[in-house]
């Protein structure tokens, strides 16, 4: 029934054929990952000759050393962390407040405003990027953290998700709390918000991943190397022709850029599994 029912992985309930199918699917998924990691551990000159050399030694950490030797790399990790965390917490806060308002408060123009939010879902970033670029130029926001964070805070999907989630919570809870003498803020903060945690986790994880992996806007907005995010920074070090720096180096960059994601995954593993399985388990 609730997400609390999700335990660790279990093989019970699979038929042998089903198990084989799942194993095959897992193998298909993991092969490119192993390939990437494997290539990143090879000297570049060997890969130039033949990528099948990945199956045998010598292996080396030279490519990773080369990445860390770039003085800017830690700055980029820091930038990405600041931008992604700020975006995530900002989106969570704004979506929760807006969702509560749309789901629970009566005010003029509520419907029209909600429709406007939904329309936001239908507008692709490409359609507004030039206007946004102009606007941020005028406001002198390029090459600043606000410049990287603010666009991500407009999250119509988050507002929509939280509105639906708040609507799914029985109004009787609000009413019981009203009779318990709770203020509107207490109801929001102590009664309803804790109940939206599963949705917060889902939204938070997806927002963080999207923000961390975002490439286009940081590429446009951050022109100074010190303001690059990790994605932009890593790409910038590839110069014009990627192969010049070597395939192994490229692969090491990919692995390096995804390490923070792996850490996030390890920390929030349970929540991520629930978030993805959410539709099925609720």
């Amino acid at each position: 029934m609730t997400a609390a029912g999700v335990k660790g992985p279990s093989l019970a309930g699979f038929t042998p054929a089903g198990l084989a199918g799942v194993a095959l699917a897992a193998a298909v998924m993991i092969t490119p990952l192993l390939w990437t990691v494997g290539l990143s551990l090879k000297p570049n000159f060997e890969l130039m000759r033949d990528t099948s050399s990945v199956f045998g030694p010598p292996y080396t950490l030279e490519n990773y050393r080369a990445i860390l030797a770039n003085s800017n790399v830690f700055r980029w990790v820091f930038n990405s962390t600041v931008v992604s965390l700020s975006t995530t917490f900002g989106v969570l806060a704004l979506s929760s407040l807006a969702g509560y308002a749309f789901a629970r408060l009566e005010f003029r123009g509520r419907r029209a405003l909600f429709v406007a939010v939904l329309l936001g879902l239908a507008i692709p970033e490409q359609a507004v990027i030039i206007a946004r670029h102009q606007m941020f130029s005028a406001l002198h926001l390029h090459n600043t953290y606000p410049g990287l964070i603010l666009p991500g805070l407009s999250a119509p999907f988050g507002v929509f998700l939280m509105t639906q989630y708040f609507r799914g919570i029985p109004v009787e809870l609000d009413e019981a709390a009203l009779l318990d003498g709770a203020s509107h803020f207490t109801i929001f903060w102590k009664v309803l918000l804790p109940l939206t945690l599963p949705a917060q986790a889902t939204l938070g994880i997806f927002t963080f991943l999207a923000s961390w992996n975002d490439y286009w806007w940081p590429l446009i907005s951050a022109t100074r190397s010190s303001m690059f995010t990790l994605t932009v920074g890593v790409a910038s070090s590839q110069m014009n022709f990627a192969q010049t720096s070597g395939l192994g180096y490229l692969m090491a960059q990919a692995v390096f850029a995804s390490v923070p994601i792996l850490i996030v995954y390890a920390l929030f593993q349970q929540h991520i599994v629930r978030a993805v399985a959410g539709a099925a388990t609720r």
Binding site: P170, L173, E175, A176, A177, L178, D180, G181, V191, P194
Partner: peptide
Amino acid sequence: PGARGVAMVFQHYALYPHMTVRENIAF
């Protein structure tokens, strides 16, 4: 509602699901 000196038991109980019984009663 909270100032009327009235308590109500709801048809579907409307207990706060994330609070323990103790917290529910103390709220």
